[in-house]
């Protein structure tokens, strides 16, 4: 395997782990999070600080980084419990931005320069092993009766609460587990690229991961993996075809999100959509007047 192929493999694996985390939060539990890069960044920064400043072994730093991200997930989870849908999305976005501003201004995180000289400890085998493990654990959770309570919260929170489910706890659990996943991914990333700066906490990074989850299909684990592979590998392949593509990459992300929502909101490998069954592809409704029935269905 060439070094380049190896790089693509590693980045794909890292993205898969992070995207699986977001898949649990947004895809299965239905809590749209726009601050996933914040958790990723916490994992990356904490683990990198531990290996560079405290000379901790990589494995330990990775674990501590992941749990710090999980703690951040808990902190974000609490105030966001009272928020639904759009409000929650904006609040998580705010969390990501606050993290970025912190990383940009704190002394210990190295400000805009970030952290350099992180030891190279992430190898392909580590990433593959952890990605497979992450997938299997999440699958186990989703397939269990406990996992069904997460999906119930997505399907109808009021009904889930009325059925005796502590929906607040379910949502916080989703945020903590999802954040831990992102934290592991962040730690792996820092120890592969060996240099991190506040740009890894940017809003666009959160959107990139969200695109992967949405493309594959909200609420589908194989879909999440497929979406991640497509969106990580394709730009690399296209880059070798034409350098212009990478310039248009984010424009394409934007169009992709719109087209997907219009034509196939359940994603390529369509698991469940967000509520409202009997989905009529939106493009069929173009130019159509809103009927009373539409309103009644809201």
């Amino acid at each position: 395997m060439s070094a380049y192929q190896q790089q693509i493999l590693i980045l794909t694996g890292i993205n898969v782990i992070s995207a699986l985390g977001l898949s649990l939060i947004s895809g299965f539990t239905g809590q749209l999070s726009l601050g996933h890069a914040g958790f990723f960044g916490v994992g990356a920064y904490i683990s990198a600080l531990l290996t560079t400043k405290a000379q901790l072994p990589f494995a330990l730093a990775l674990v501590v980084g992941a749990f710090s991200a999980g703690l951040a997930g808990l902190v974000v989870g609490f105030p966001t419990l009272r928020l639904k849908g759009d409000y929650l999305a904006i609040a998580t976005l705010g969390f990501g931005e606050i993290m970025r501003v912190l990383a940009l201004n704190l002394k210990i995180t190295g400000g805009p320069v970030g952290i350099r000289g992180i030891p190279h400890s992430t190898w392909p085998s580590t990433v593959i092993l952890l990605a497979v493990l992450a997938y299997l654990l999440l699958k186990k959770l989703i397939d269990s009766h406990v996992g069904k309570t997460f999906i119930a919260v997505r399907e109808d929170e009021t009904a889930a609460e009325a059925m005796g489910l502590d929906t607040a706890r379910v949502k916080i659990s989703a945020f903590v587990i999802g954040a831990i996943y992102a934290g592991v991914a962040g730690g792996l990333y820092a120890h592969y690229i060996r240099y991190i700066n506040p740009s890894i906490l940017g809003f666009m990074k959160s959107i990139e991961i969200l695109c992967m989850v949405v493309l594959g299909g909200m609420g589908s684990l194989p879909g999440t993996v497929a979406g991640t592979v497509i969106l990580t590998v394709t730009p690399e392949l296209l880059r070798s075809v034409s350098p212009l593509i990478s310039q248009y990459r984010q424009v394409i992300y934007g169009v992709l999100l719109i087209v997907l929502m219009l034509c196939r909101p359940q994603g390529l490998f369509g698991g469940a959509t967000y509520k409202r069954e009997r989905h009529v592809p939106a493009w069929k409704l173009w130019g159509r007047r809103e009927s009373a029935n539409d309103i009644a269905q809201r």
Binding site: L141, S144, H145, V146, G147, K148, T149, A152, A160, M163, G164, L165, S173, I177
Partner: peptide, 11 residues
């Protein structure tokens, strides 16, 4: 899912 009301298992 409704039976999970009496669940003692965590994630």
């Amino acid at each position: 899912v409704a039976a999970c009301c009496r669940s003692t298992t965590g994630p």
